[in-house]
Design a protein around this nucleic acid. Structure first.
Lengths: 308, 308
DNA sequence: CAGAGTGCTGCAAAAAATGCATCGCTTGGA
DNA sequence: TCCAAGCGATGCATTTTTTGCAGCACTCTG
């Protein structure tokens, strides 16, 4: 009997709300038989529908008169509710359409610390310039936590340098990141095109904490020549790295994606030779097997372009 | 399969909203099979219900995962709507309960002018002292209009003196009202216990307009002795009657229900002999065949008590 | 008074919802 | 690596609900 999936008014037919539509039809026409014509069912079925509803509702909603029916006060209160909820459902449908159209949504990202200062702010700003109703959540996660975040749905996307393992990780994009030495522009090594690791050992070292991918790579490189790195300072804050390098004449380390290449005339960034420190991979991905929300997928595409 | 008419949470089962309850059950338990146990149907039926809804809604509302299901962003928006409309329906039910319990409602009254100055204000104040959420509409209507108001549902109750006809009028109460002469307390006739109509004719007369019941009775009495009343003033405002009588030494007429017996030391009210002017009936009633809203009925009972 | 119009109801037919049994897939533990 | 448990989904028969047909009782109007 329901051959259309859209009402004459253009809204989708929601079967559970047909009774509401029928109540309103009877109210409008003032009679079961007229409303039955308008809704294309028999007066008999319509009458039973109204009666069944009144039974459930626990109260009559119409007065029965010799020449038709009229909403009683209870019915008038109910009609108001009917109209409110119809409007609200239209609102929800509109929001859902926004979701599927990329215009609205919430994207949750787990990322390595290096992505925080420049890369992600820039990409998010770019995306939101086009889709201002998309909101973001960004959580710093280390190489173990990032994957966990995906599994527990705390995050839709992960952007992580040298993750510990990638069992549940579907890789969308990977980009190689060499390890850069970070120092004052006045540093004796500042004008070099590349550095050997052992050249750095002659200066104070500022190292990331052990949970960071860069630290792992540096420790691995030191193990290869039978030594151990002795940091003057160990920190999980890249701002601390930067300040110490700038004012204490030390050397810190960071991957290129964490450096603002254009903005620091008082700082110098020189790559460490790959034969000493092999560099690592920065991965963009999501939970294996999951279908991403549209906005998250589109943002991921934008990030892939930026990483290429 | 639905053997209760109340959910475990104490709300009435509204069959058209069961799908919403099921969606919430799946969300809560994270799996079709667990939710099916909670809602006492098979997983098969529950799964089909969700799928049918998604089909109607035009969008999936759950992500299917290997270990269960989880609301997607569209589903989260819908869940918010579900909770809003459930709350709103509870509000409507509560208001309807108020209606049936006399505590809330709107009572519409058509009445003769005489009821306006003292009687109805007093009765309404009294009722609202007990039920402050009951509201009133009071419309002055002449002997013809009052019954019309009932027929068109403009009014629930009519309180009318000498109505023109009572075809559609169900009488709840009738009370006899003699015609009173209204005059200054300093008037020569002011101390009389009763008056003959012809005694009044020696003074200026202030008469109500022809659509009023009192005027009809006075004209009928004059016709009986072959004369005609010559008013010095004819008006549809009882205040005008009162002022003219007080300051112009004239005589006006009104029924007792329109007079404040206690409050006018400068005014005198004397009944006209019934053999001259027979008096009339004040009727309280409603549309024949109609079941009154509870508040209107209860107010009518109060009015009947006051008229007795 | 008769006909038109109203809501309502018995009962059969049609449509929708449900339960049973099973499938294909993933995951966790031995 | 394999197997059992757990998951959503589906074919098909059964059950439940909804609907339409025919007609009733009542009111109103000309």
């Amino acid at each position: 009997m329901h051959r259309l999936d859209v009402t004459p008014a253009g809204t989708r037919i929601m079967r559970h709300l047909l009774t509401y539509d029928m109540i309103e039809a009877v109210h409008r026409s003032g009679s079961i038989r007229k409303a039955a014509e308008d809704t294309n069912i028999t007066a008999s079925a319509l009458n039973r529908r109204i009666q069944a509803f009144e039974e459930e509702f626990g109260s009559e909603i119409f007065e029965r008169l010799p020449r038709g029916m009229r909403l009683n006060p209870a019915g008038e209160l109910l009609l108001h509710h009917i109209r409110l909820q119809r409007q609200d459902l239209i609102r929800v449908h509109s929001q859902v359409a926004d979701l599927s159209g990329v215009r609205r949504g919430h994207v949750k990202i787990a990322c390595s610390q290096a992505l925080l200062p420049y890369f992600l702010p820039r990409e998010i700003s770019k995306y939101r310039a086009e889709f201002p109703d998309v909101t973001f959540g960004v959580n710093v996660r280390d190489r173990i936590q990032a994957e966990q975040d995906l599994v527990t749905f705390e995050s839709d996307l992960a952007l992580v340098f040298e993750p510990a393992h990638m069992v549940n990780f579907e890789v969308l994009h990977a980009v190689h990141q060499p390890v850069m030495a970070v120092m004052s522009a006045a540093h004796p090594l500042a004008d070099r095109k590349t550095l050997r690791l052992r050249e750095c050992l002659e200066y104070d070292l500022v190292l990331p904490a052990r949970q960071f991918g860069v630290r792992v790579l540096l420790d691995q490189a030191a193990a290869r020549f039978g030594g151990k790195l002795e940091p003057a300072l160990e920190t999980d804050s890249f701002d601390m790295v930067r300040h110490f390098a700038a004012y204490g004449h030390g050397i810190g380390f960071q991957i290129p994606v964490g450096l603002n290449a254009l903005a620091r005339p008082d700082m110098s960034f020189v790559p460490i030779a790959e034969r000493d420190v092999a560099g690592g991979e920065l991965y963009l991905g999501h939970l294996k097997g999951r279908t991403l929300p549209v906005a998250a997928l589109k943002f991921a595409n934008q990030v892939m372009t930026a990483l290429s």
